[in-house]
Design a binder for these strands. Structure first.
Ligand SMILES: [Mn+2]
Ligand SMILES: [Mn+2]
Ligand SMILES: [Zn+2]
Ligand SMILES: [Zn+2]
Lengths: 144, 144
DNA sequence: TATTAAATCTGTAATGATTACAAATATGAA
DNA sequence: TTCATATTTGTAATCATTACAGATTTAATA
């Protein structure tokens, strides 16, 4: 995993996004934290290093990156948006207990569908996720 | 589709929920509006018939029905929860343009998975949905 | 029937995530 | 430098949801 500033910079340039310092830091954060973080998590760490960072900038940047296809928004918790640097269609597991979101490695059956429509609706994205109790939380339960 | 008050009443009783008038009306609404409505939509119609209806009661009742397994919460828009009277695991289509959520009839490949775990995580729910432009919105686009 | 405790409903306030917006700052060309 | 544009920042507003306390209803008991 290459996550130095140079790589992140060229990644933004390739997508036609001006690589400002704030944007570089936010994108770098996403590369280094693959747990599908919230805006809050991103902001809380960056404000330590960049005391002038505004939460609005985090929101603005994530929206921009999302629109340009650099990151994906995950909306499965119902309370807040989670962000994913992995833009390839893949499935997730949401733990009902701790709220963690894991990537799961299942081959999506619809991924290579020949037709990009269903019941007349034009399909642009395919999402799949599981909900339950994660490995860690199961272990905790058993140790009680 | 049977959606008279008697049916709705016995449905609540079977689940051990006291069938109050407000609960009956909310559940009846869900039976008659299969478009995965929001709290707002439910409240806006019921307040016409029952001027004393409180939005808090709508929230409370939907939470109760959800906990008792009478309805399902759908959290795919990222902005508000949508409610589904159909509790059997099925897939959805969310239109990016008009926001409508449709049921789609695809056989879920994970539905009859023999193992109820994945990567050590205990699976309790399986969710799948597509995003794109719905049939209606496609037609509108073409007529411009 | 009257009493009373528990359950339910209601209205308002609080919360938390997100967006709107305008002023401040940085950037980059002329 | 000058000036227009893009970006960032801080604050206020919005919107969905939850917390909470008082009012009302229900149902059991005397
Ligand atoms: Mn992921
Ligand atoms: Mn449905
Ligand atoms: Zn967990
Ligand atoms: Zn549509």
């Amino acid at each position: 995993m290459i996550t130095n500033m140079k790589h992140v910079k060229s990644e933004l340039e390739q997508k036609g996004i001006k690589p400002t310092y704030q944007r570089l830091c936010i994108l770098e954060y996403l590369h280094e934290h693959l747990v599908h973080p919230t805006v809050e998590m991103i902001y809380d760490e960056l404000i330590e290093r960049i005391p002038t960072m505004s939460k609005t900038t985090v929101y603005n940047t994530l929206k921009l990156l999302s629109e340009k296809g650099v990151i994906n928004e995950i909306t499965i918790t119902g309370t807040e948006v989670r962000y994913d640097i992995n833009c390839q269609s893949h499935h997730h597991f949401l733990c009902k207990k701790c709220g963690k979101i894991y990537d799961v490695d299942v081959t999506c059956p619809f991924a290579n569908m020949d037709h990009k429509e269903i019941s007349g609706h034009e399909i642009q994205e395919i999402h799949g996720y599981f909900k339950g109790i994660c490995k860690e939380c199961l272990i905790k339960q058993n140790n009680e």
